[in-house]
Design a protein around this nucleic acid. Structure first.
Length: 402
DNA sequence: AGTCCACAGGAAGGGCAGGCGA
DNA sequence: TCGCCTGCCCTTCCTGTGGACT
């Protein structure tokens, strides 16, 4: 290895030691020993699940709250404690945690059931079997012994939006077919209105118990950050105003603890890279910009080719000075570009879906408006700084060779 | 009040790839 | 190898929508 590279690594290790003691403690997936300001939810969930220790089936639970309000953390924490406790008792308790948004793992009914079966130690092929058969494999392994299985379906709304609530109906009725095992379902969602769109039968069985996770306020976020700062940063490297600033910024955005932690960690990383001895308010400002910028650039890079052409068409229209961009305009420019790139153009129906997807991931802002006799359409805007717009255009042009 | 426009978006189904079991 | 199954991307067909225009 050349000396210069070694020097970079040595410098990094030296610098890293100046700011962070444990960067991992500043990530949202880190599980601390205590969870501040969630006592009520922890106690409630623990008392709902407690009957499992005596062999009883706990009620199904439905948890809802905005992102970064501690739902997953609390559920995993209580689950782990329960599993530990059950090891000392007679009835074993098994916790199966699954995030329904995980691409290629649990984003379809087949994959979800297959993954659950795998968690119980039964291998299931990635595709190829009828869904009914996968359910059967899962039932067989599930009912192979007397135990309580608690299935945590995180971001369950994503799966329901994709394929309806039939699978949830199957899951909530699962106990009727089991002889030895007992199953409890915990559904977690960020969508506060999710429960209302469910079939009444699913709704009543899934939400036997409901737990609400309210957003953290700025003071509560400060407590959370202080706890993590003790674990993750060296003493005295944070300026006084950093924690209040990160908390206030995250509190503005529905009290998202995840965002507060990201801001704090990235601010620390920026200070580290600049060889600054202290993390200051200035670093938080840069972190705020960087997080948003990175999120958009990464999303754009991951887009399929056709969606990239659609986005290119939108940026092109904006650069021409069009401020009232509609689906039809985008489609016309898109078709032209497809001809130029010798790319097979998709139908307008499909482009409509792609625009909806771009809106959903937050790259564009599309609002459905009615122009009276001039029809109903999407009004498309791009809320990006000119610097970000240019960077995105460069990425699109380099990957599309336009 | 009725008509019309330019779509939005749901439903159904085709074609393809990947994978399984016989 | 073949038939079958699923997921995914896409098209086609269709109905619905809401406000300007007549």
């Amino acid at each position: 290895m050349p000396d210069s590279v070694q020097t970079i690594f040595k410098e990094f290790v030296k610098k890293h030691a100046m700011i962070f003691t444990d960067r991992n403690a500043l990530t949202s997936h880190f599980a601390p020993d205590t969870i501040p300001h969630r006592d009520k939810q922890i106690n409630m969930l623990a008392s709902i699940l407690a009957p499992s220790l005596k062999g009883g089936r706990p009620s199904n639970v439905f948890e809802y709250g905005m992102t970064g309000t501690g739902k997953t953390l609390v559920t995993k924490y209580v689950g782990q404690e329960l599993e530990k406790m059950s090891n000392q008792g007679t009835t074993p308790v098994k916790i199966l945690y699954i995030n329904c948004k995980m691409k290629k793992i649990a984003d379809t009914e087949y994959r979800l059931v297959a993954e659950l079966a795998r968690m119980l130690g039964q291998d299931v092929p990635m595709t190829g079997l009828p869904t009914e058969q996968v359910y059967q494999i899962f039932f067989n392994i599930l009912d192979s012994k007397e135990w309580i299985v608690i299935i945590i379906l995180d971001e369950v709304d994503a799966l329901v939006a994709k394929m309806g609530d039939d699978f949830l109906y199957n899951f909530t009725r699962i106990n009727q077919d089991l002889k030895k095992a007992k199953v409890c379902i915990i559904g977690i969602t960020n969508d506060l209105n999710f429960i209302d769109v469910l079939d009444p039968r699913v709704k009543s069985s899934l939400s036997e118990e409901e737990i609400l996770f309210p957003p953290y306020n700025a003071t509560e976020l400060q407590d959370i950050l202080k706890q993590r700062v003790k674990l993750g940063f060296h003493k005295g490297v944070l300026s006084e105003e950093v924690i209040p600033k990160c908390s206030a910024l995250a509190a503005q955005e529905h009290g998202d603890a995840r965002r507060a932690l990201d801001l704090l960690r990235v601010a620390g990383e920026i200070a580290e890279r600049r060889n600054d001895e202290k993390v200051t308010e200035k670093h938080v400002d840069i972190a705020l910009e960087k997080i948003d910028y990175d999120r958009i650039v990464e999303s754009v890079k991951a887009l399929p080719k056709q969606t990239k052409v659609v986005l290119w068409a939108i940026i092109n229209l904006i650069e021409k000075g069009e401020d009232d961009i509609q689906t039809g305009d985008v489609f016309a420019v898109y078709e032209e570009k497809c001809k130029e790139c010798r790319l097979h153009p998709l139908t307008q129906r499909r482009i409509s879906d792609l625009l909806a997807e771009l809106d959903m991931i937050g790259i564009i802002n599309a609002k459905i408006i009615s122009l009276g006799r001039y029809g109903r359409t999407r009004q498309i805007k791009l809320d990006l700084s000119s610097k970000t717009k240019q960077k995105i255009k460069n990425i699109l042009e380099s990957t599309l060779v336009i």
